[in-house]
Write a protein that binds this DNA or RNA. Structure first.
Length: 135
RNA sequence: CUUUGGAGCCAAGCGUUCGCUCCGUUGUUCUUUUUUAUCGGGGCGAAAGCCUCACGGAAUUUCGGAGAGGAAAGUCCGGACGUCAUAGGGCAGGAUUCCUCGCGAAAGCGAGGGCGUCUCGUUUCAAUGCGAGGCGACGGAUAGCGCCGCAGAAAAUAGGUAGCCUUUUUUGUUCCGCAAUUGCAGGACUUUGAAGGUCAUAGUGAAAAGGUGGGGUAAGAGCCCACCGCCGUUUCGAGUAAUCGAUCGGGCAUGGCAAGCCCAAUCCGACGCAAGACAAAAUAGGGGGCCGGGUUGCCCGCCCAUAAAGCUCCGGGUAUGUCGCGUCUCUUGAAAAAGGGGCCUGCGCUAAUGCACUCGAGAUAAAUGAACGCGUCUUCUAAAAGCUUCGGUUUUCAGAAGAACAGAAUCCGGCUUAUCGGCUCCAAAGCUAG
RNA sequence: AGCCUCGUGGUGUAAUGGUAGCACUAUGGAUUCUGGUUCCAUCUGUCGGGGUUCGAGUCCCUGCGAGGCUG
């Protein structure tokens, strides 16, 4: 299991209530590309062992093709960096219009900075272990 | 060969690594019950319950298969399908509109023809005729209502402002005749007013009440005539028809606008998959209103209900899952559902019925992606070489940028809009060579 | 996804098919020692395209934009 990075349906936020609560009471991080809200789940929820993400793109971002492209890029970024994220974290990303023009590398850099800013990085993980997994 | 136009087709390729959705398949683990409904088999047990196994479900895993469009878009039309306790009638509302034929379930599309209009060429003094091309939401303006600003005399059953003409009145000039300084009578011109005739003429306007020519008249006028135009339930002929031609009649009545209201003909029940169905959860039945409620916006009619319920508003609560989600049929099954086959498309074989391959998305905070590499095309920049009529042009190499419009959401048929390019065919024009 | 409504100066809002107005704002000037108030003048517009009509803000078609409703 540890040799691959999957993105299961259990790792995605699918309820409107989750979006509302995280957006209302989560910790915000804002930049020109997106706004990130994060919240650490309580320890009672033992079934969920992984971080969850939900991506929201309104119609102001662009047409359907552009919205889907940005959402796919953020899913890919989350998938490839999920081992570094606190497992009890719930993340909601609201995409803003300039993200359509941004490249994949820019989005990845901003996302990692947002993780560090909100304190969502996993403490026990080391960079050497990450390199071993990718190899 | 180039350019333009039309029609049709495609929607940039390959490889590696990782990833997503669905289906089938191989294992593993958990679950098989709390609520609702009578609900699998076996064992223990008085019962509650416990253990175990199958079907099923969930998570994960092996292998294999499939996975956005010509417009998926806009939601402009038409259907399928579902619901409304039937869908009947009338009114209202909406859609369509030259004729014929073809395709289609319908919308719509295509071909041909007719008519109108515009442009060009040609003919004619001109009107007009002929030819080519473009455009046309192209039924009806003698069914009715309404509107036609400004300008202009007048804008719609014609009327009469100026002007013209006749009669009469007044003023003046002049001519002629008679008597002879002056007067009388008459004619012509002019001026003022009145009555009448008339609309050819009018610095307008989008449009001026048939046009041109001639006769006629006091002046004029379809008042009359010729030609052209117009109208007609005249007749004849051609054509399936729209319509056209000839003839006869009518002196002309009938301005334009129906993408103003409207009239005629034909058609349309309403709402839309967030339609709706099932299951579960929550509320534990609060307060106000209607006595009826539903069926189409309204009326009739119909259906349900008759004092309990129903409907509606406010407040509170829940806002989750499955189906609907190609379609038909067969089998299994009580049902739900599952499985198989056909329908569709392309190609091959057979004389044919047929046979074989393929049968292509069902996501639901919404799946097709990310990274790297190779090659192709276009543009730009820089360099080298060849040809040159010194304007340029061709080839090679390097670098950079770009490779469209755009993402299924119940499905299908059209319409419209967006779109980098590539290929094939047809037509026209130009250039070069034979 | 389905359905509905609306686009007029910078803003708000009028206009039976017949010269596109009103108020606020902005700019300039006058008044004042200065500012405000007041007065005068100016600027700025029918969402784009096509059609019907003599003539479209209005009527019709089509696109664009904005807003809303339906669980």
């Amino acid at each position: 299991m540890a040799s691959r990075f999957r993105l299961r349906p259990a790792q995605r936020l699918r309820r409107n209530a989750d979006f509302v609560t995280i957006r209302r009471s989560g910790k915000p991080y804002r930049c020109s590309f997106f706004a990130l809200y994060s919240k650490i789940r309580k320890s009672e929820d033992l079934e969920l062992t992984m971080a969850r993400i939900g991506i929201s793109a309104s119609k102001r971002v662009g047409n359907a093709v552009e919205r889907n492209l940005v959402k796919r890029r953020f899913r890919e970024i989350f998938r490839l960096s999920q081992h570094r994220i606190e497992p009890k974290a719930d993340i909601v990303i609201s995409i803003r219009a300039p993200a359509v023009e941004a490249s994949y590398e820019e989005l990845e850099q901003r996302f990692k900075h947002a993780l560090k800013y909100n304190g969502l990085l996993r403490q026990s993980q080391t960079p050497s272990a990450r390199r071993r997994r990718e190899g």
